[in-house]
Write a protein that binds this DNA or RNA. Structure first.
Lengths: 209, 209
DNA sequence: CCAAAAGTACACCATGCAGTGTAGTTTACA
DNA sequence: TGTAAACTACACTGCATGGTGTACTTTTGG
């Protein structure tokens, strides 16, 4: 009769891996709630149910652990916004689809966490901030590309597609991003999201189409 | 022959007032550069050329000193945005004037400092953040009021003036506020400001007028 | 010119935290 | 079942920091 599974956790991962994940989870939670400065390695160890020494065996320093969770959050929220322009289809549904993609991305908890922590740390480490800016700008490329294509097709009139793209995304972020980041406001309801997507597309097309 | 003015500083303020101002100046500078956690009272004292004890004689704790500079920055940037609606005048110049007021406010260094520090501290003290949110919302009232009046006059068509006001201000902040706050980008040039004000007014009137 | 008010230098306390070293226990695996 | 790897408890260092107490000097103003 084999020993019952009791002492063996349901989790098939090795101890080391489980510990590592526990540390990362705890770190994300603590950093998110308290920011970099106020989070202590002892606290993370406690939250993770791990000895402090184990934390240091996995991550050489607080800085490295922090960097690790930033890249992890970044990857978790990596879904790109983009849609290749289709000349034969009407503009409006394409545009709304783009805006919905953006909206979904902004509503991801991982993305919000990332942005909050990263922005709060802007003061502390400007180089990291610069890195973020660059990567965030890359993420805005999708919509710019679409606008450029629609312009080439004669359907949109603007002499600065990047500016128009920023304007457009700003309409979304004004409601669905900045208030959540800067002032901890709750995410939008489905109904609110619909209203914002629709009226942003409306306004944009009124002006540029 | 009276003693030359050498030992008496040109500043007519009493010693105690000069010291107090020096402390506040130093505190603003340090908090702004490093945030609450990383700023030390010893550091502030050093920067202010004041003994640490004097700092504590003026401000009972780091928290109180921080609160003090927040309210001070707040008052410095207190210029309100508002313009009473004039039925007989055309919409566009009125709107552009409002947007320029907003633009000027966002470009004030005091205002940017305030916002940066306050937002960075959102995590640390949510109650303070909530306070800020409320006060910031008050500042958005001016434009809402104007829109409401224009609507009552039949010149603008919207069923939600507050929403439209947020949209409008969002167009400005997308370029002239959030990038500066969240990612330390430089303030806009005059030319950029003009472009943004003009095209925001354009777009807004196209849609709502 | 003198007394009160304010500033200063400095020593000091308590605390919390990043990070290390170690000796012993548990887990993985061949 | 035995060994290497990983985890743990724990003690400890070093440092920065918020905050206080005190004895002494400078400024202020009547």
């Amino acid at each position: 009769m084999p020993k019952p599974a009791a002492p063996r956790p349901a989790n098939p991962l090795k101890l080391t891996d489980r510990k590592r994940l526990a540390i990362l989870d705890a770190a994300i939670s603590e950093f998110r709630q308290q920011g970099f400065e106020l989070t202590s390695m002892d606290g993370i160890a406690r939250t993770a149910n791990v000895s402090k020494r184990t934390v240091y065996n996995h991550f050489a320093s607080k800085e490295l652990l922090f960097a690790e969770i930033l890249t992890q959050l970044w990857q978790n929220s990596a879904e790109q916004v983009g849609l290749s322009y289709q000349a034969e289809a009407p503009l409006r549904p394409q545009l709304e689809e783009l805006l919905w993609q953006k909206m979904r991305m902004l509503n991801q908890q991982d993305f919000i966490d990332l942005a909050r922590v990263a922005i709060a740390e802007t003061i502390h480490s400007p180089e990291r901030a610069q890195d973020m800016v660059n990567r965030l700008n890359e993420r805005e490329e999708g919509i710019t590309t679409w606008i450029r294509a629609a312009k080439a097709d004669g359907k949109l009139h603007t002499d600065d597609p990047a500016f128009a793209a920023t304007q457009l995304q700003g309409m979304i972020k004004t409601f669905a991003f900045w208030p959540q980041i800067a002032m901890g406001q709750p995410p939008l309801t489905r109904k609110q999201q619909e209203h914002i997507v629709t009226s942003s597309a409306d306004m944009f097309l009124h002006y540029y189409a």
